[in-house]
Design a binder for these strands. Structure first.
Lengths: 220, 220
DNA sequence: CAAGAGTCTGATCAATTGATAAAACAATCT
DNA sequence: AGATTGTTTTATCAATTGATCAGACTCTTG
């Protein structure tokens, strides 16, 4: 068949570089996918949350999978941007204070955007095309960089001598979990995981364990 | 209407205290729910994995929700059993070594049964009836006990001075995450998260951060 | 204004969902 | 043997799923 649905025939023209409707859909997708997982989020509810009709999703995106990828891309773009600001200062391999700042920024970002870790967790537990995309495209670079940073910290004696693989999962576990479990945390404890004081306290706690007692530097 | 589907009319007789078919279904439910989330696991695939016809699920369980609860109950029963063996020794509030053993056991259990943390994470990110069940019935008691144990450790100076709420999420994050992300971990690193040496190394790492350098006591 | 490209919606598709009904099978007891 | 109770399956239900199509709406441009 020659005819395809309007859009997908020729690739997006990308005239104004930003499409507000498309962005609203991606924003809704980030929220709903991270809450309900890929299968649990129906295209109807997705569309409703974005305030559009359901078939519009298939106009802006080839498929539900395609929308999911757009959501993941958006989240990682945000994280990369948030961390690069800090990472720029750490390029030199010895900058322990800078590395510490990056870790704090990572935790703060996780609190601001727990959706990212939720979507990673949802796909990390069983192989599949979405995990392929996630790992190959996004997670591995983050892991490589983290491993490198942590390696220099260990070498510098700033952090206990633990294999970087374990440090990676300790940091990506201990940091975001409180915020990934936000609603549960609010019920279980009396803490509000969206409160900036709580976020800073958590970053303090993780850094205290990793780096030992220090003067606390507040991030953002 | 008087007639109900065979089983649900009168409550289960529980004659032999164990029903192999029911257990196979629950086992399949634990695996599939934890992999694919509640909505993502279809009753057809559930039944296929248990090797039975699909309507049999509704014979043994009132609904899909009911089966989910049975799966959660089973997982928490296993954890309680695994931890109680250790916790029994710690009742006395000062037993630091015992508390440490409990934490190691918790990590080992998380490696053996990552499904538990997967199911918790899936429901902890948005309120709903399943989160009600999970938190009220299972998670809160675990949290209370953990908070109490960690409180005594902090008081004894065995662990850095961090509020117990944060310690809870640090432990439940840093401990299980590597195993919850098992398949991803295998791709990302060269470690096999089901390998006992890796599990012990991870427990060592977490304990090193929490308790500082010590002679390592191997658990199980 | 008319034309046409781009954006959006209502109606509808086949496929899959959780659940039910009725009937087949199995086991025990008389 | 026949009857009864408990277990399992085949066939089917209405509802929901992701996706498609044709048409309506909005723009700009001629």
């Amino acid at each position: 068949m020659i005819q395809q649905t309007a859009r997908h025939g020729r690739e997006r023209v990308h005239r104004t570089s930003s499409d507000p409707t498309r962005e609203r859909i991606v924003a809704a997708a980030i929220d709903l996918f991270s809450e309900r997982s890929f299968e649990g989020a129906s295209t109807r509810e997705l569309a409703a949350r974005a305030g559009v009709a359901q078939p519009l999703l298939n106009y802006h995106f080839r498929s539900k999978d395609d929308l999911w990828r757009a959501a993941v891309d958006q989240l990682f773009a945000e994280m990369t941007q948030a961390l690069d600001v800090r990472t720029a200062e750490v390029v030199a391999d010895g900058d322990v204070a800078g590395a510490k700042a990056v870790i704090r920024e990572f935790i703060c970002f996780s609190a601001r955007r727990p959706q990212l870790h939720r979507m990673i967790t949802q796909e990390s537990k069983a192989d599949g095309p979405r995990m392929d995309y996630l790992v190959d495209r996004h997670v591995r670079p983050v892991y490589e960089r983290t491993a490198q940073i942590m390696g220099t910290l260990v070498k510098a004696g700033a952090v206990p001598d633990i294999p970087v693989e374990h440090l990676y999962y300790i940091i990506t576990g201990a940091g975001p979990t409180m915020f990934v479990h936000g609603p549960e945390c609010r019920r279980l404890t009396s803490l509000d995981p969206t409160d900036d004081a709580v976020i800073q306290a958590h970053a303090d706690a993780v850094c205290l364990l990793l780096f030992g007692p220090h003067v606390t530097t507040t991030t953002k």
